[in-house]
């Protein structure tokens, strides 16, 4: 019998943790079906076919989408579609590039001994430990200084002028993703015996074939974990995106923040719900991959 099973402390702690972790999310999802235009109180679900008169005499208009009214509203919102498109474009592009760079860095750090190796290793932790806002301001300063100089030096005009936009956001995301990918892949490489690569070369494979046929398949689960982690980080990044975005590169977090400053309608909740589902699926996938990976290595 598990000695912890009946401890009231454990039960209380569990309730406490789950309440604070998940109650806000559940309420957020529930409010996405709210009949009220405001997010203050829950006034029941929206009827699908005919208007409904509440006890206090107020009228709840029916919507063709029924309780999913705010989701339909969301689907018709071009701004949201654009923001979602930007978010995914940035996340995918940055993930692919950061995964390649991060994996290469991890391989180099595992394989070679060079003078700056301890410094390189340490520098991986810097973007992770320094406050995101500091990094955001830093990146913004870098971009604006560089763009100012470049625009001046090459006397760029009109559309040719360098400015903040989807490219700067992507580059900034790559910058903070690389250390995460590198560290995850490094952990995976820890048990990687170089004799596998030697065996492949011994059997006639050159360096590239060895990487393609032996090294990469063996580290692939680690690379995928790193990529998925980076992807989810990019999806919900607010601070760095806030500093580096420009016209036409609004991402979902930035868009939601904008909505909150004006009127809070349950559309925000609907958006958040969809978003949670996307991120949750990604994380679930990551978990499945990792558990399969650890099973393979036990």
């Amino acid at each position: 019998m598990n000695p912890f099973r009946r401890s009231p402390f454990v039960i209380a702690a569990a309730i406490f943790v789950y309440t604070f972790l998940y109650a806000p999310i559940i309420i957020l999802i529930l409010y996405s079906f709210n009949a009220s235009r405001t997010n203050v109180t829950f006034e029941g679900f929206i009827p699908a076919f005919s208007d409904r008169i509440e006890m206090d005499g107020s009228l709840v208009k029916a919507s063709p989408c029924g309780p999913f009214h705010w989701y339909c509203d969301l689907a018709n919102n071009d701004d949201v579609a654009e923001a979602a498109g930007n978010t995914l474009t940035i996340a995918f592009t940055a993930t692919i590039i950061a995964t390649i760079i991060g994996t290469m860095a991890a391989l180099a750090l595992q394989r070679y001994n060079f003078k700056m190796k301890p410094f390189s290793q340490l520098s991986l932790y810097i973007p992770i430990v320094i406050p995101e806002i500091v990094m955001g301001i830093g990146i913004l300063t870098l971009f604006s200084q560089f763009f100012g100089w470049a625009n001046e030096a090459f006397s760029l005009q009109g559309d040719a002028r360098l400015s903040l936009g989807i490219v700067t956001v992507t580059v900034s995301h790559i910058a903070f993703m690389v250390p995460f990918v590198t560290l995850v892949v490094q952990a995976r490489l820890q048990g990687f015996d170089k004799s596998f690569e030697e065996a492949a070369m011994d059997l006639g494979a050159n360096e590239w074939t060895t990487f393609r046929r032996v090294t990469f398949p063996m580290i692939l689960p680690g690379v995928l974990s790193g990529a998925l982690l980076a992807f989810t980080l990019s999806l919900d990044d607010f601070v760095i995106t806030f500093f580096t975005n420009g016209p036409g590169s609004t991402t979902l977090p930035i868009y939601v923040y904008g909505l909150l400053r004006r009127i809070i309608t349950p559309q925000v909740n609907a958006l958040s719900t969809v978003w949670i589902l996307v991120v949750f699926t990604a994380v679930l996938l990551l978990q499945i991959l990792q558990s399969r990976d650890s099973k393979q290595h036990s």
């Binding site: 015996d193 065996a199 059997l203 032996v214 063996m218």
Partner: peptide, 12 residues
Amino acid sequence: NTVFQSYALFQH
């Protein structure tokens, strides 16, 4: 060709 101490068989 080499036979390795750890065998180095490709696990995948």
